[in-house]
Computed example of a mutant assay.
Amino acid sequence: MFFGFRRGTAPSVQKNKKIQESILCSISIFSLNTCISMARQTRALPKIAASLHDDAVHREKVLHAVRGSLRNCLSETHLERTVPGLRSKARGKVRDVYDAGDYLVLVTTDRQSAFDRVLASIPFKGQVLNETSLWWFNMTQHITPNAVVSTPDKNVTIAKKCSVFPVEFVVRGFVTGSTDTSLWTVYNKGLRKYCGNVLPEGMVKNQKLPTNILTPTTKAVDHDVPVSPEEIVKLGLMTQDEYDEVSSKALNLFAYGQQVALEHGLLLVDTKYEFGKGSDGKILLIDEVHTPDSSRYWIADSYEEQFSAGLEPENVDKEFLRLWFKNHCNPYDDKVLPVAPEELVCELAWRYIFLFERITNTKFKLPETQEQIHDRISKNVSHALSCM
């Protein structure tokens, strides 16, 4: 994802090389128990139970709209052809990014990615991701400034151009996951020193870590590659001061996200953040924040029971779709992937909307007309840029 141009080129780092142990910078972070305590002390919004099936009528209404929009997903955009002043396009796995001079126009599509490739298109996904991110960007300004300038469309954010750090800051609270770089995958292979963290023996999948940890990654070709804090500085990806500031922001963002999620009956399990520098040298939060694409969420009330029974937690993210592909193909190596079942696509759309509504305490506004999404976006972006 680009909010500007990555500063430097990330070197290739072997996934299985022995990562040197380093001391994780001393930063105050919240454990799950701390989050629970803070949630109980919060009077503005008490902790509430969450369930994917509590409101059957609303769920069916959403699923009906999703089924009706399966053929109207925003899978690709070409604003360079329809909006005057846009200079170029960069296509990410989910977002299409356009150069508008001093700004970038970021269009969140309905593409669903995992395993470093696009798996499907999910109705309303672009809108719900964009709106979820914007809510979190607004709620986290007390922790860090961000690059957002305006939001002219449900699927669009206009942002400041940044010099982007070539490091993704992945923060984890649990040992889980199914991809090659997930913490459970590497832990299950016997690795106990990971990205500068020493992991305890005897942990099992989906277990809570003793404390939240940072596991940064950088890019080599199209894959995320784990990297230690020492390597980040040694390889010139960031200065020590930059790393210290960004790592502190990332851990504090995650702690705050855990607190807010728990107040709404959810566990924020892990996530990734990206940062860059604005033209004034200020470090800004970019990309997306605490979305079900960049994060794992579990239902809080059922976690202990599911974990004790050796079952997967109730998730409100794309993990169940990841697991379906892992069970039906080799998602990393197969040239052609199976088509995701319609029922899974619809269920994922519902879970993303459920998460948005649960976190923001607002109803997701389903599109009221059959206007082509690309036409609507072109019109709204053209108007916004003409006023800037």
Rank of each mutant, 00 (worst) to 15 (best):
L323G: 01
Q258K: 13
E288Y: 02
D270C: 14
F3W: 06
L129Q: 11
A147Y: 12
F137C: 00
D222G: 01
L385D: 11
L235R: 07
P226E: 01
Q258P: 12
V246Y: 05
N206H: 12
Q20M: 10
K17F: 05
V225G: 00
T291L: 01
R296H: 03
T9F: 08
N361F: 00
I359A: 03
R7S: 15
R376G: 06
D96T: 07
A90Q: 13
P145L: 05
A220W: 09
D317W: 02
L79T: 09
A114S: 15
D222S: 10
P152T: 09
V107K: 11
A120P: 03
I48V: 14
E314P: 00
E357F: 01
A90M: 04
D102R: 08
K15G: 13
K363S: 06
K363C: 04
R351E: 11
L209V: 02
T291F: 02
R351P: 03
E245S: 06
L209T: 00
P216C: 08
P152M: 11
K318F: 06
L267F: 14
L262E: 09
Q259K: 15
A120K: 07
R40D: 15
T218L: 05
D224Y: 04
K17V: 12
Y297D: 00
N315G: 12
T218D: 04
S382L: 07
T239S: 14
N380T: 07
E288R: 01
M203I: 07
H53F: 13
A384L: 06
S294G: 03
N206I: 05
T77Q: 14
T140W: 01
S302E: 01
L344N: 07
F5M: 12
N130D: 12
R91Y: 09
D102Y: 01
A44H: 13
D222N: 11
F307Y: 12
I36Q: 14
I373A: 04
A10L: 12
K189E: 14
G278M: 06
D96I: 09
I373Q: 06
K15L: 11
C162F: 08
D280T: 13
A147E: 10
D287A: 01
K277D: 11
V57F: 06
V156F: 08
T369N: 02
P341L: 09
T176V: 01
D317Y: 04
H328A: 03
T144E: 10
V269H: 01
Q370R: 07
K318R: 02
E131K: 10
K193C: 14
P200A: 03
T77I: 06
K89L: 11
S31E: 01
E230V: 03
V260K: 08
A309W: 00
R117Y: 10
L63H: 08
Q141A: 12
L209E: 02
T185Y: 02
C329P: 03
K47D: 14
Q370V: 02
I359V: 15
I373V: 13
G281Y: 07
Y194E: 13
K160V: 09
L321I: 15
Q372C: 09
S37N: 13
A49F: 14
R40F: 13
Q240S: 14
D270Q: 12
W350I: 12
K205R: 13
F307E: 11
T271A: 11
A39K: 05
K154S: 15
K93A: 05
Y243I: 04
L74Y: 07
D293K: 01
I158C: 00
V156D: 04
H328F: 01
M1C: 13
R376E: 11
F364N: 06
L251P: 06
T77V: 14
E319W: 00
Y187T: 04
S294R: 03
V118R: 15
K365D: 05
